[in-house]
Amino acid sequence: MLKILGLLGGLSLAGLLQAADYAALPAGALQQVRLDELHPTQAVVGHGQIHYKLGRLAKEPGKLFDEYCEANGQGESSRVPAGASVHRPDSFTCQGAVGSRSSEMKTVVVGPGGRLFLTDGHHTFTTLWEQPQAGAALRVWVKVTDNFSDSPDLASFWQRMQQARKVWLRDGQGRPISAQQIPAQLGLDSLADDPYRALVYFTREVAYDKPRSGDVAPEFLEFYWGSWLRERLPLADYDLNEPRGYRAALAAAAELMVAQPADAPLGASGFTARQLGGYTQVDRRELGKVATRKLGYLFQYRQAH
């Protein structure tokens, strides 16, 4: 136990004691875990994206089961009887079995002490964490991409994670941080806000989409777009606290994104706009839907909270 405590540094003793040891999990394994067993690999999320999701779930409670099924690689929900609960998977059905759509599952890396470090899914799982009908104790399925549990110490582990591009070391203002500044758990109280990350989420299917063929989309794809936009779009010029201002920022971001040459590197990321799913023109119809429906849920949630 003392050895594991030394490896995991700032993780709380309470969190450590409740975490299982997943050190034996190989790459490709599927594992069911509690949300509070997952350690983030980033210190920020786009709060606006999560507020939108929570606002929609408040108006459409059945979407919670879609979120849960999709996260488990099962497609959407197919039958949700009255009284069903995501805490009781046998109380409803999804379109497929767990992992039948494994490419859509959230991913983890096994780290020192057999701890699981989440590399994709911070927004979905934080939404579930904050949802009253789900919460931190909710059990979900994740897919292992790498096992780095043989790292001799936490510093070596984070170095391997950086080399593999599986950690995002920036704060909400885009400033560099150390791995030790990443919080130990999910949730809006732990993860700070990066407004550019939220803005990029709302441009999905408007100015870009995650690549669905060829190379696998890199982790933190939206953060690469967000960092690039941060250098070109001053959000201080827009009032993101009211719908009209947010719509204007969204439209400006989309125009900048589609104007980027497809094969030119996107800032310091080294990835091109094509590799990050960039469009060559704005999808105006989708932009209109986002501006009315998605931003509608976002501001309804914020007004209620």
Rank of each mutant, 00 (worst) to 15 (best):
L2D: 13
K3D: 15
K3G: 14
I4D: 11
G9W: 00
G9E: 03
L16H: 10
A19K: 13
A19I: 00
A23I: 01
A24W: 07
A24T: 14
P26Q: 11
A27G: 14
H39P: 01
T41V: 07
A43D: 02
H47K: 11
G48R: 01
H51N: 11
K53M: 15
L54H: 10
L54T: 00
E67H: 11
Y68K: 07
N72T: 04
S78V: 11
P81F: 09
G83S: 12
S85W: 04
V86G: 10
H87K: 10
H87R: 12
D90T: 11
T93Y: 08
A97C: 01
V98P: 09
S100E: 15
R101H: 14
R101A: 14
S103A: 13
T107H: 14
V109S: 05
V109D: 00
R115P: 03
L116K: 06
L118H: 00
L118Y: 00
L118W: 00
D120E: 13
T126L: 03
T126H: 02
L128I: 12
E130N: 10
E130F: 07
Q131D: 11
Q133D: 15
A137T: 13
A137H: 14
L138T: 08
W141D: 08
V142F: 04
V142C: 09
F148V: 08
D150A: 13
W158G: 08
M161K: 02
Q162S: 14
Q162K: 10
Q162I: 06
Q162A: 12
K166E: 04
V167N: 02
W168M: 02
G174E: 14
I177M: 06
S178G: 15
P183N: 09
A184E: 14
L191P: 05
A192P: 06
D194A: 00
Y196R: 06
R197W: 07
R197S: 10
R197Y: 07
A198K: 01
L199A: 05
Y201D: 05
F202Q: 07
T203V: 13
T203Q: 13
E205I: 07
E205S: 15
A207D: 00
K210W: 07
R212G: 15
G214V: 12
P218I: 01
E219W: 08
F220E: 05
W225R: 05
R230M: 08
E231C: 08
R232A: 09
P234R: 09
P234D: 10
L235W: 02
L235G: 09
A236P: 02
R247C: 02
R247E: 02
A248S: 10
A248H: 03
A251C: 09
A251F: 05
A253S: 07
E255T: 10
L256D: 01
A259D: 08
P261K: 03
L266M: 12
S269E: 08
A273P: 01
R274Y: 03
Q275A: 09
Y279N: 13
R284E: 13
R284Q: 13
R285D: 03
K289S: 11
V290H: 06
T292A: 10
K294Q: 08
K294L: 07
L295P: 07
G296E: 03
G296T: 05
Y297F: 15
L298N: 03
Q300V: 12
Y301S: 09
Y301F: 15
Y301E: 12
R302N: 08
Q303S: 14
A304Q: 15
